[in-house]
Design a protein around this nucleic acid. Sequence first.
DNA 1: CTGAATCCTCGGCGATACTG
DNA 2: CAGTATCGCCGAGGATTCAG
Lengths: 119, 119
Amino acid sequence: MACNQIETEEYKKEMKAIQDSMDVLNGKWKIAIIKSICLYNQRRFSDILNDVVGISNKMLSKELKELETNKLIERTVLNTQPVTVLYELTKHGLTLQTIIKDLTDWGFRHREEIIGKSL
Amino acid sequence: MACNQIETEEYKKEMKAIQDSMDVLNGKWKIAIIKSICLYNQRRFSDILNDVVGISNKMLSKELKELETNKLIERTVLNTQPVTVLYELTKHGLTLQTIIKDLTDWGFRHREEIIGKSL
DNA sequence: CTGAATCCTCGGCGATACTG
DNA sequence: CAGTATCGCCGAGGATTCAG
């Protein structure tokens, strides 16, 4: 119900907003990385590298940079020997949780719908 | 809060579920197409082609097929001259509305957070 | 009108090696 | 440990043309 609305101006704005969201979340790894950090609140580079099965260090490095640019995570360098780098979600990053939860729920329902059985 | 949970089995399932969702929604066009159909409940090929700015017919055709495979939309061919083809959301397709709304809202907030002002 | 077919480009992503 | 550098594949997606 009520997903129709004729206001085209509003419609265009919404489309842009969605594209913004998708750009941030797109790609093969972003959400997996966020989940990894989220799971432990704080996580090191190599920890995430282990958590996110299949990712290469190059990709991880790139994705982390993008997430930081988008102010979703924060990078902290510790003066240990050798260096330790911690990543954690920002306040803004934490607001993604609703979406992530919805995506999870819908994913389960979708699988049932398509394959006819759950995980 | 409470996005951490130690159960790794559950964690893996959730990751798969999210990947399922993202696979369905990924790419440059899927959500825009869904929104277009949704806006009018029923929409023809060339209508969507106009709604979704920038998409090529090849892409539209491909995306529509995928959406149909995923049982999100339904294709109806009318015996007109020339042929008319209608696309509409299925019940399952309509369940995406929550996610789409969340993505829209978050997109707005994100823009404020990053650029410092709204659309 | 609704696509399918073809050709081409560009960037995402992987593999491996190297650095402070 | 936490990345960078380099090479290269492959598929997403654009432009154009053809077909029923």
